[in-house]
């Protein structure tokens, strides 16, 4: 029971932790952890979702945020943008030159990320500066463990090609 409380506490403070990380951090055996997580899921205190090749565990009440985050990190370019923004606020041109992608592509992705509430923007003179709305640690944790399959990788590339074709947003 005490062990389960410890697991719940860890998940609450580190949403998006993977099964392996959790087992390693708490020094628990796989069978033991599986049992406690099953109980916690049944009690509605945590939920888990498979994304790419990994399963992520979240505290209850995080469902809405999770859906948005999944869409936010669904393409390689967005993951690179988010990782870059973890270093601090950046303008559109800074993001484009740091990642070697066109400004229209950055503009499209920033518009999408803003719509999802993952980033926010503010005007600084002539520039619009973007910053993360999420805990950088949470984003780093999820992106670091995210392993898209071959189909998703190909789809990501197609999205990147299509978004760099023009400069109009939908």
């Amino acid at each position: 029971m005490e062990r389960r409380g410890e697991i719940l506490n860890y998940i609450t403070h580190r949403p998006g932790v993977t099964f392996r990380e959790l087992a390693r951090a708490l020094g628990l055996g796989i069978g033991d952890l599986q049992y406690h997580l099953r109980v916690l899921e049944r009690e509605g205190k945590v939920f888990s979702r498979k994304l790419g090749k990994r399963r992520y565990i979240f505290p209850a009440g995080f469902e809405g945020e999770y859906e948005k985050l999944v869409i936010a990190i669904s393409t390689e370019t967005r993951r690179r943008i988010l990782l870059l923004l973890m270093e601090g606020p950046k303008s559109q041109s800074e993001i484009a030159s740091a990642l070697g992608i066109s400004q229209p592509t950055v503009s499209y992705h920033m518009w999408e990320l803003k719509k999802l509430g993952t980033v926010s923007d503010r005007r600084e003179g002539k520039k619009v500066v973007y910053s993360l709305n999420y805990d950088p640690e949470l984003i780093a944790r999820i992106i670091r463990n995210y392993r898209p399959g071959i189909w998703e990788t190909l789809a990501d590339r197609l999205i990147d090609i299509l978004t760099s074709l023009g400069d109009e947003n939908d």
Binding site: T75, W151, A155, D156, L158, I159, L162, D170
Partner: peptide
């Protein structure tokens, strides 16, 4: 077509739907 479908589901880009 499969790749375009996944791309459309992820991005909702109309271009992916046309493809």
């Amino acid at each position: 077509a499969g790749v375009s479908f996944i791309a459309y589901r992820k991005s909702h880009l109309r271009a992916a739907l046309y493809l």
